[in-house]
Design a protein around this nucleic acid. Structure first.
Length: 296
DNA sequence: TATGTGTAGATCCTTTGTTC
DNA sequence: GAACAAAGGATCTACACATA
């Protein structure tokens, strides 16, 4: 019993230590992901193209050189958590009685009754009433309406096409046939005659609306892309400046060069030490560096 | 203050899909 | 069919909060 417990503890200790995402890392992650989606890194089936996580890993490493975030497990895990959260909020918003508060960036519900009845059947939604979720709008661009169900991400135009498809499904009353139709190309679909419906005018209007919305999103995405570039460049510059500054400080203290190199390694790996270092007198700085090196 | 409990989310492992 | 990457489920852990 005791032995088993010990080996279990040893196994636990062997595991990689748990890392916590900072707000900045999370924001950067979502922005990068959003950018990749606009560049077409998402497949029709809803999954991301191979190598996407590695690209995100590299981008995050560029922004936060000492963050140590890896495609696996960190990015994998974050992707999963955000997808789940998005799924919960999306499901709520698709029900009547729920709405999105654009100012507070949270879900609002019409009445306590509606809320209680919903959480009774959706335990995972507990705690999401008025809980701020500022990433929701970005995640909507990333996951679209497919949430976590593995369907392809949908653009507004796709959504309208879905509506049209659903009209056909209703007409035929046969989902299997509709699936065949959706998986086939237009040439095969056109061989089937669709009954003209009054709702076609509405669909056409929606289609036009969706197209203009798509154009608007394209422009917005271009701006996001530019912003990401600026953020990455500025973060690189800041990091570079900081490293140069620390190096100058260390060499100024007349510490041997090899000690400066070791100290710089430790200090840049532990961002919290930078502010402490800067707040100290020269004499204390030397002590601080020596102390860090001893604990290395 | 110490301990117990619940929860969010990080990690591990297996399955599934894609590419060559 | 092998290799690789993503997705999904199971498990574990850090943290917050409640209670004695």
């Amino acid at each position: 019993m005791e032995v088993g417990g010990n080996s279990q503890n040893i196994e636990r200790l062997k595991r990689a230590s748990r890392r916590i995402w900072t707000k900045k890392e999370e924001d950067a992650f979502v922005t990068i992901l959003e950018d990749l989606v606009t560049k077409g890194y998402r497949c029709d089936n809803g999954s991301f193209k191979p190598g996407t996580n590695l690209i995100i890993e590299k981008a995050l490493t560029n922004i936060f050189p000492t963050c140590g975030i890896k495609a696996n497990p960190h990015i994998d895990s974050k992707m999963k958590v955000l997808r789940k959260q998005y799924s919960i909020v999306y499901d709520m918003l698709s029900k009547s009685g729920f709405g999105w508060n654009d100012v507070k960036k949270c879900v609002e519900v019409d009445s306590e009754e509606v809320w209680q009845s919903y959480v009774q059947h959706h335990k995972e939604a507990e705690g999401w009433k008025r809980r701020p979720f500022p990433l929701y709008e970005k995640l909507m661009n990333i996951y679209g309406t497919d949430r976590a169900n593995g369907q392809g991400a949908e653009t507004p135009v796709d959504m309208v096409e879905d509506i049209n498809r659903n009209h056909v499904i209703d007409d035929m009353g046969d989902e299997e046939e509709s699936l065949n139709q959706t998986s086939s190309t237009n040439s095969t679909a056109s061989s089937r005659r669709k009954r003209k419906k009054p709702s076609d005018n509405i669909s056409e209007g929606l289609r036009k609306l969706a197209e203009s919305f798509d154009k608007m999103m394209e422009k917005s995405n271009e701006q996001v892309e530019k912003t990401v570039e600026v953020i990455v460049e500025s973060a690189r510059k800041k990091e570079h400046d900081q490293h140069n500054f620390m190096w100058e400080e260390l060499t100024r203290l007349e510490i041997p060069v090899e000690v400066c190199i070791d100290a710089l390694d430790i200090i840049v790996a532990k961002p919290w030490t930078i502010s402490i270092f800067n707040s100290l007198s020269d004499e204390k700085k030397v002590e601080f560096v020596m102390s860090l090196l001893r604990k290395k």
